[in-house]
Nucleic acid binder design. Structure first.
Lengths: 136, 136
DNA sequence: CAATCTGTATTATAATATATAATACAAACA
DNA sequence: TGTTTGTATTATATATTATAATACAGATTG
């Protein structure tokens, strides 16, 4: 199963769907151009409403992770950033991406440090995650 | 001013307050035992409701960042983890903290990679944030 | 003592967010 | 010709978020 929904979570269902699909793409379990279940299929399999799935798909589409076509349905669309720009760093798009996620990273590091997580442990955890995502 | 609230943000106000106080503690702008404004003062200064501030304070208290006393008000309380456990790594509390923030970190790294952020750039950004937080 | 501050509790109200339900439609496809 | 696709609509229900107006007990201060 692609999705593991937690109905008692405070994270909205449509957000959980979005997050898990982004993660699946990053881990290579979903590949560029690959078709994902229709809103109805995923809704039925997960026991949720069709429009909840649609909301997640719309969100993914706006972020560029999904391409939606009436004829072919919804397909994974890996941003050009990760394809063309991965070779030569320092692109304007990349630095924009870094600046966008910086506040979240600052907060995450703050919480980590205040719970005794050393810089070394944090960085090695990052490396571990990178390594797992890259190997697939 | 301690707080910079964004009323058009999708992040709830009480959550913004909580996040910014955690960040201020990590950056040393708020120190252990330091008193923070009363719920009424902060509410008036920020133009929001008293109970909204109270909700943020309650959240911070539950997480261990705040100690609240009727006589002395609300004071910053830095968790013991970051004081005692910072010297010797690999504590059970610390690994628990890492495991708790791992899902968020996985998602953050996923989004970064899919936007062309290299491991080197991500790690150097982490180092930069660590450095700024530690120097204060 | 009287006034003022502290956090907290209560009740009510409003707006927004989230999720579901039941249909419906046009486009594409087998 | 059905079936599937995404999408739109309308209605309903619930939860979350935020405000407003009070009130109370405990502590501090003038």
């Amino acid at each position: 199963m692609l999705l593991e929904l937690d109905f008692s979570s405070q994270t909205p269902i449509y957000q959980q769907i979005r997050n898990q699909i982004v993660l699946a793409v990053a881990e290579g379990r979903l590949k560029d151009g690959q078709r994902i279940p229709s809103v109805r299929t995923l809704a039925d399999e997960s026991g949720i409403n069709m429009m909840t799935v649609n909301k997640a798909y719309q969100l993914l589409r706006q972020e560029g992770y999904l391409q939606i076509d009436r004829r072919s349905g919804a397909r994974i669309s890996i941003p050009v950033s990760s394809i063309f720009l991965s070779s030569h760093p320092e692109g304007a798009v990349v630095t924009a991406a870094v600046n966008q996620l910086r506040p979240q990273l600052e907060l995450l590091i703050s919480e980590a440090r205040l719970h005794g997580v050393s810089q070394e442990l944090f960085l090695s955890t990052c490396c571990e995650i990178f390594h797992r995502q890259k190997e697939v």
